[in-house]
């Protein structure tokens, strides 16, 4: 018989605790705990569209188990922007902050267990606790940094260098993600990806 989803909650909460403490190490544990207790757990089937483009659900997610693909559509093609695995946090952040339409689609590539919290609840902890506001600032800085870093990589690294970097940082994704999504994420064609992979 399959385990009940709730039985996974404590271990994912522990991972969330570790993730947030890594972002902001000096967060008081009792304050962090209060925030973590606000997350609920839910399971999703492979290929579920968690959030389609054009919709904003003001929810912050943490991946307990599974794989998320974040993509947008341009000229009729799907461009994969991010591939996230266990112990990653994500949200339709731009849409939440600006009020503009969300133009990304969030899709689950595997059966997944996600922790989630309403952004309004998450944000209420910023005013409640100074350390949580600091955590929030650091978290958005990390997102911002990741976006900037990706821009730099696409501009200045060759396709092969970007592939090598991907292998170095996301080894486990190679076996879990269809190659066409990896190619799209790296900004190259599947043919180019195959050529590069043939060398290794």
């Amino acid at each position: 018989m399959a385990k009940r989803i709730d039985s996974y909650l404590p271990v994912y909460q522990q991972h969330l605790r570790e993730y947030l403490l890594k972002i902001s190490p000096n967060t008081p544990l009792n304050e962090l705990e209060e925030l973590i207790q606000c997350f609920t757990i839910e399971k999703y089937a492979k290929n579920t569209i968690l959030l389609p483009a054009g919709v904003n659900n003001n929810t912050v997610y943490f991946i307990g188990k599974g794989l998320v693909r974040i993509f947008y559509e341009k000229d009729g093609k799907e461009i994969t922007n991010w591939l996230l695995e266990e112990n990653s946090m994500f949200a339709p952040t731009y849409s939440i902050l600006s009020g503009d339409t969300n133009y990304f689609t969030y899709q689950l590539l595997e059966n997944s267990h996600l922790l989630k919290i309403d952004y309004a609840v998450w944000e209420s902890y910023y005013s409640k606790y100074h350390a949580i506001e600091r955590l929030g600032r650091r978290l958005i800085s990390v997102y911002y940094g990741a976006c900037m870093r990706k821009t730099v990589d696409v501009l200045f690294l060759s396709a092969e260098e970007r592939y090598q970097l991907f292998v170095k940082e996301h080894q486990s994704l190679l076996n879990r993600v269809p190659l066409r999504h990896i190619a799209s994420y790296l900004g190259i064609t599947q043919e180019t990806l195959s050529r590069i992979r043939a060398k290794y």
Partner: peptide
């Protein structure tokens, strides 16, 4: 700290917005 968070969020949003404009 609240001020700093607001500033970073605004800059992040501007960055995403200008990427979007450039692309679409």
């Amino acid at each position: 700290e609240h001020l700093a968070r607001k500033i970073v969020e605004k800059n992040y949003s501007s960055f995403i917005r200008s990427n979007y404009n450039r692309m679409f």
